[in-house]
Amino acid sequence: MHLNKVSLEARHISLSYGSTEVLKDVNIRIEPGEFFALLGPSGSGKSTLLRLIAGFNQHQRGELLIDGKDITGTPPHLRNVGMVFQNYALWPHMTVWDNVAFGLVERKEPKESLRRKVAAALELVGLQDYAQRRPSQLSGGQQQRVALARTVVIEPKLLLLDEPLSNLDKNLRVQMREELKNLQRTLGLTTIFVTHDQEEAMTTADRMAVLDKGVLQQVGTAAALFDFPANRFVASFVGTANLVQGRVTRVNGETLHFQADGLGEMVLPRNQESPGAGPASLSFRPHTVHIRVRDEHGDASRIWLDGRVESSEFLGETSRYRVRVGEALIVANQAHYSGLSLFPPGAEVRLGIEPTQARFLTH
């Protein structure tokens, strides 16, 4: 089973319910065969956009194109788009085989072809031995696979997944993430999935779009969004970020001077992304911050700040500290090795910020 690869493009899509704008001028292009995530908090518009692609709701402005053809007025059953819902929506009274065959029966698929396609879909998800079971006799992960098989068996142009892993426990989620990725690679099917879980998006998607309050914030690979967030929202939603407000007071040659609220002046190297004078936020990730005892000298390439540990969390691979520096609270992660004891609350420490890993955000 190898399916068609199609592109999807949203051009200036806007949708309102009454006076509430749910999607505001959204522009995205998803490439043929791409595994694409729509990421955002509850109420960001990501599920609305997915349902709009499926045809379950209708935008008031803009165009929605599959392979360059506007499908705005096309009803759901004529779009040939497959959707897997969060709760799987399997028929409890039907066997796995009949659940998977359902869409083909509806389409009056000839018997021989139907048998061949259902068998291929079950084999694809590793459930060929479970064909005669009922959904209630399956685990959550197996039900998820049945829902996937039932969707891909109709050979859709697009596969849409709505929070596909949210009903599974953590270990199974990680396993199913791998399976989903492998299945998508095998099929080469353009796939769009909605999630509020940044880890899920970062580990599976080729690229992702971050939405907030119906507005598209940024599109790119996980690494691009993590390393070069477009704004404060993306910086804090994709991963964990320290955001220090302040203003750039002076820019000269190779350096700029940043007056950080509650922290005082920092002198940082200037690069092509550096802003001019004016209000800005400095963003840097906790794992790039060095933490050490107060009287230890650090290397001169870092910006060193003196602080006091307010709290610590042991996360296994890392220890996470919240450190009070002046009026600011800075989060620093330290890689954990056995025998390394935690800094206790109240400990006087120095934090080293790596300037090359810091980013200026102006909105």
Rank of each mutant, 00 (worst) to 15 (best):
R270F: 01
A101I: 05
H287K: 12
W97S: 03
P92M: 05
G188M: 05
R150H: 01
H2Y: 12
R185E: 11
A54N: 07
L127H: 01
M83P: 07
R79N: 07
G220R: 04
E163Y: 01
N271E: 08
L122Q: 04
G73E: 14
D70R: 03
V248W: 04
V174A: 13
L168E: 04
L183F: 11
N87A: 11
A121K: 04
G55R: 03
G276P: 10
A147Q: 07
G140H: 02
L243R: 06
L104I: 04
D162Q: 03
K108V: 02
K170R: 14
L114F: 06
F35R: 07
T221M: 06
E254P: 11
R185W: 00
E348R: 14
R150K: 04
R350E: 12
H77I: 10
I53M: 14
A241V: 05
A230R: 12
L189A: 09
G68Q: 04
L183G: 02
S139R: 10
D162W: 03
R51I: 00
S341V: 13
S319H: 11
F228S: 14
V96G: 00
D169R: 02
S47Y: 06
V219R: 10
I330G: 00
M1Y: 04
K181M: 11
G214N: 01
P344R: 09
